[in-house]
Amino acid sequence: MNDVVVTVRGATRTYNEETIPVHALRGVDLEVHRGDFISLAGPSGSGKSTLLNLIGGLDQADEGDVIVDQVSLSELNENQLSDLRLEKIGFVFQAYNLLPVLTAEENVGFVMQLQGMSKTERSERARETLASVGLEDLADRRPGDMSGGQQQRVAIARAIATKPVLLLADEPSANLDSGTTEELLQLLKKLNEEFGMTIVTATHDPMVMAYTSRKINLRDGAIVVST
């Protein structure tokens, strides 16, 4: 069994903003192994978010290749990329991005619904997952009736309920106070250590970096420090 989950080879990405090309990534190489808990750090514009997007299949590299779970992303079309994200990757967003019209349980369950799972199975799995993030009592609440920390836990539950090979988190602590951030990081650490979940976060929060097992620093679209 191959324990490399993600391989990035010579990835470049250039955005053409108002005719001035912005080189977000200038040839990055990276390997993510099963069970890694990685932080991508660096100042704004360093390319950490771009790298995370490439790994997650939200964006495609101009040159080079990104291989996730032995699938080369550069050869996939929009629908195939969608399916890859659906089956293999869990996302946690800075703004949580929960659907306001759905309850916590439904927010966790709908990704499984997209996968075509039966109603009873996904309901059971959603409740289980909510329990694992400590929200079993709030399953029927809507996001508007929850705190930021609670919403972020629902978002994590949504991301892991489908048992992805890779969990990606973009600035997961940005909207949280330090106490809540601590709880969130412990939850992520637990997922990493107890369930072997591979996690990659993009962050500039030192608290987050302190929890991760590998720290990668980017500057001007290139990796400068990698542990």
Binding site: G56, L58, E78, N79, S82, D83, L84, R85, L86, E87, I89, F91, F93, A95, N97, L99, P100, V111, L114, R158, A159
Partner: peptide, 16 residues
Amino acid sequence: VHELGMLRAVGMRPGA
């Protein structure tokens, strides 16, 4: 836009 973007990110196809 945010909601629909998220749905796309977690794997909903554009057609959906």
